[in-house]
Design a protein around this nucleic acid. Structure first.
Lengths: 153, 153
DNA sequence: GTGCTTGCAAAGCATTTGCATCCTG
DNA sequence: CAGGATGCAAATGCTTTGCAAGCAC
């Protein structure tokens, strides 16, 4: 935890930004909720619990900044809000999402599912890949016995 | 073209909706721009050329309706606007996107890149897949010689 | 003090909704 | 003429921005 904060501090410093108390509080919330996919509002409410004086705009600016520095990932599952995820350098390229169309839960899976696929895209389409997103939409294991899957087709 | 319109008309009728002139104009724009990924605003402006009296709200309502009936695909590339695509039943599951981080162009590729992957996700995570999105972000063949790729990393 | 940060409020956009009107059957 | 469909304008919801004040080096 502390060493992760320290690392992010370095990353900010290397781009001439400071780890202000507000930014640190925001980063801590992200670290404490690494499995989740928090929206800016979610982060704001959690940060407010510890630091009630923080403004929503500051949270947005911090998330935008961390996103630009590629410390976090900004993503979109089609529900109208941006969601944020800490980036773990190692698992990053092998990190995909399972979005449940019944309960809305977003699970993460860590598997190198695209072995060979990226190379193929590069060779066939002359497209230089820098990042990718792979998201599966369906019904999660918690809901599968409770719903009629045909209702979602 | 005409038979595609006719088919969509049937799909609407089967759900007790009509193919009104406004809806037809909207569908025609989508058919005429099948390669593109138009935003609602784009569609609105194109429809307006032929039918200047149409309202933006009607375009939104039509796109929403077509999306619910799964006649079109609503998607999101992270630029803050929803984009729409006609669904071709056959190529649908093998239809992916290449988003250029320099010029913003979205190219489509049609390849069954995920052979085996879906089965694996289903078996390992007990997740019943109904749809997926695979998007690659990078630099397209038109831009690769004009930019320094490290600037995007 | 100079420049980055912040909080607040106002503005910005994309999208949705209320409502009176208009068709269509 | 009854119900769906439309156009307009207003409202909404997420996000960004302007600006004056605060803070740090």
């Amino acid at each position: 935890m502390e060493e992760k904060i320290e690392k992010i501090k370095q990353q900010l410093h290397s781009h001439n930004y400071k780890l202000t108390p507000q930014r640190e509080a925001t980063v801590r919330v992200l670290l404490e909720n690494e499995q989740d996919h928090l929206s800016a509002e979610d982060v704001y409410l959690l940060v407010k619990e510890k630091s009630p004086e923080i403004g929503l705009a500051t949270v947005y600016r911090t998330l935008e900044l961390l996103s630009e520095l590629k410390i976090i990932h900004k993503m979109n599952f089609g529900d109208g809000v941006a969601r944020y995820d800490l980036r773990d350098d190692n698992s990053d390229r092998h990190h995909h999402h399972l979005v449940c169309m019944n309960c809305g839960t977003v699970d993460e899976i860590f598997e190198n599912l695209l072995v060979g696929v990226e190379e193929r895209v590069h060779n066939v389409y002359n497209f230089s890949i820098l990042d990718h997103r792979l998201t599966f939409y369906g019904i999660c294991h918690r809901c599968i016995d409770k719903v009629n899957i045909d209702d979602f087709k």
